[in-house]
């Protein structure tokens, strides 16, 4: 997993991703009923894209990075291989985080009534597209 943010005189600069990432989030929300929010975050906790309805995206992205750190370690230590996804079920709903390539994750919020099976299928599909877009944007930004 690689960090996307860079320290500069102005503070943290992070990657701008193409609008297609937002389109993918919108499409995910349209495909899965009972979602209450969706965002794309860098693995170091910055919001790269968010669905319009997602409030507190910065906080969620930052917490996602912390949970991700534990998730990655836990998978590693127990011999389960690379990180794929994380599902938290609260009394009032779900928070799910899916790896999207090596540098980003898709985090989704859902009501308790969500079809988790469908959420997994559709979110995994979305991460493939998001990973392509983020990796392409990253390759672009690496060029001098």
């Amino acid at each position: 997993m690689r960090r996307l943010s860079r320290q500069s005189a102005e503070g943290n600069q992070h990657l701008t991703v193409p609008a297609a990432v937002n389109d993918e989030l919108r499409s995910l929300r349209a495909r899965v009923p009972h979602l209450t929010g969706a965002l794309v975050a860098s693995v170091d906790g910055f919001v790269l894209a968010r669905d319009a309805a997602t409030s507190e995206a910065e906080g969620i992205a930052a917490l996602t990075a912390v949970a991700l750190g534990v998730g990655i370690r836990l998978a590693e230590v127990t011999g389960q291989g690379g990180f794929r996804e994380l599902l938290v079920r609260g009394e009032q709903g779900y928070v799910a985080t899916y790896a999207a390539g090596a540098s980003a994750v898709v985090t989704v919020l859902a009501q308790p009534s969500v079809n988790v099976g469908r959420l997994h299928l559709e979110a995994r599909r979305s991460t493939v597209r998001v990973a392509e877009l983020v990796d392409a944007a990253l390759a672009q930004s690496d060029k001098p």
Partner: peptide, 28 residues
């Protein structure tokens, strides 16, 4: 939840995970 507690058969022409999630919507 739309998740399968157990599956048998299926294969590449019939993904039972997809069928479980999809038919959950049918039942609901």
């Amino acid at each position: 939840s739309g998740m399968a507690l157990g599956t048998i058969g299926g294969g590449k022409d019939l993904d039972l995970t997809v069928a479980a999630a999809g038919n959950t919507d049918v039942v609901r």
